[in-house]
Amino acid sequence: MFYIVTAYHAEARPVIEYFNLKKVVKNSRFQIFAGSDVVLIESGPGIVASACAASFLLSEFKAEDKDAILNIGIAGAKNADLKIGDAVLCHKIIYHDTGRAFYPDILVKHAMKEGVLETFDFPVAKEDLPENSIEGDMVDMEGAGFFEAASFFMPPHKIHCIKVVSDYLEKVPVEPAFVSRLIGDNLSLIRDFMLSLESVDSFFPRGLSREDREVIEKLAENLKLSFTMAHQLKNLALFYLSSHERLPEELFDFLNVRVNSKREGKNCFERVKKLLC
């Protein structure tokens, strides 16, 4: 599953259309839209709002490590090295107020530019700030809050800020329709990146499947195994699976066994161990 956080509806609209998302009725102050494998939340502007929205989304939808979360939005560029309309994957996100920096793990190939994002608590006009007071290549008002909150839930290669350059930090308002067009024009690039992120997990073998875990838990319960023994059982199952496709059929026979004492359970456990070693 992909989770997407945008600040404004103008940023969300092209994403909603592109992924054919439908509004979800939730008892929350956030607007949420969902499809089969994408859920989007509109946070509103500011780092606190973005952090709250990211936390809410990941908790409410019970995100797992195999999922990913993106902050998609516009940003002002510090200089003309970046062009209006460029999609930039951020490899460093600085919270201007504290100087604290966050680093997404960029492990997959992508066709976007890369740069440093600096998040301010207020709208930034370059002429209002002393020279050299902006360290980032781009400026926004959400990235750092989003990233810090998402880091509580997800691994750093599954949290990314993608910013589309909308202006050069001049005191000129950016029209919503223009924002939607900038985001919309980059969605195929963003989708390719999402597909690469998704494919990473599929290459790596996983541990126990949900079914295997249920079998282990049931066995531990039936055989009255101690915490340590249950842990040993799980480890032995993984050892067995390192050289077999699935757990041995004979193990499932123990699902029907009920023991009346710990001693009896211990004896059964010894037989289970032999099966798995």
Partner: peptide, 28 residues
Amino acid sequence: AFKVRIKHYKDVFCRPRQNFLVQESSRK
């Protein structure tokens, strides 16, 4: 390579929830 300035190596090396297994395929 992209050169990224950091304050301390642990800011990158010791981030929480890194996936060692996946990182091995694209070490930084």
